[in-house]
């Protein structure tokens, strides 16, 4: 395995559609809940330990080779907001395209056939990591980092936030990212024995609610 593949997969320039999504930051900015670096950090920390942990665990489990169809079902059950399910499948489909072109694999092909309109993004991410020769914790790191990187980048555009401050936020979240990735790797290994039900289901009520509000805006900069 090449650890450098993780850099390719986690690179914000990896062409998988993420740039059009704010991870809930656009709605939080409009509601006045993100106003600067401090509130961005709290937003990201909350997202990381809730949906970020759930996504990282799904990605880690997929990277270990758990049945992606069962994982996709588990992701549906953990995503009550229809707007977030739509966004997750859209991003999953886009990641699938990029991953198949980058790391051709029979498992990615099979998943694409099973979900022509896209599986949940973390599931695709895990299978892509597997195709790239990466491990469960690598996939978890990638997913966890995306869960905070997206909102941070979007907030730079939305608030004209100083990009150095936004990068500082991500750096300060590093210990939290380590914990989430380790925990995701651990529960994914448990899931191999005990099934997908043991994967975390921690939710963020405000992300769910404001995703529905955001999807109904007539004018917005980001898709979610």
């Amino acid at each position: 395995m090449s650890r450098a593949a993780l850099l390719v997969l986690a690179d914000g320039r990896f062409p998988a559609g993420g740039h059009a999504h704010s991870g809930g930051a656009e709605a939080a900015v409009k509601a006045g809940r993100i106003t600067g670096a401090k509130s961005l950090e709290e937003f990201c920390r909350g997202r990381l330990h809730t949906t970020g942990l759930v996504s990282a665990s799904l990605a880690a489990a997929a990277a270990l080779g758990l049945d992606p169809v069962a994982l996709d079902e588990a992701a549906d059950a953990r995503t009550p907001s229809v707007a977030l399910r739509v966004a997750a499948r859209k991003l999953g489909r886009q990641l699938m395209r990029a991953a198949r072109a980058t790391w051709p694999s029979a498992e990615l092909d099979a998943l694409a056939r099973e979900f022509p309109k896209g599986a949940h993004q973390p599931v695709v991410l895990g299978v892509a990591a597997r195709a790239a020769g990466l491990g469960a914790v690598d996939a978890a790191y990638c997913s966890a980092y995306e869960s905070v990187g997206g909102p941070a980048t979007a907030t730079v555009r939305l608030l004209s936030l100083d990009p150095f401050e936004a990068t500082g936020v991500l750096a300060r979240l590093a210990p939290d990212l380590d914990r989430v990735a380790d925990r995701a790797g651990e529960v994914a290994r448990c899931a191999v024995e005990e099934g997908v039900d043991v994967l975390p289901a921690v939710s963020a009520p405000l992300l769910e609610i404001s995703a529905e509000a955001h999807a109904a805006w007539p004018v917005r900069l980001f898709a979610s």
Binding site: P15, G17, G18, H19, A20, Q94, L95, R97, R157, F222
Partner: peptide, 15 residues
């Protein structure tokens, strides 16, 4: 496009 049409038509054409 997440406020960046040039990204969507050139750098990340997936959508």
């Amino acid at each position: 496009t997440g406020a960046c049409p040039h990204t969507a038509i050139r750098d990340d054409i997936s959508a």
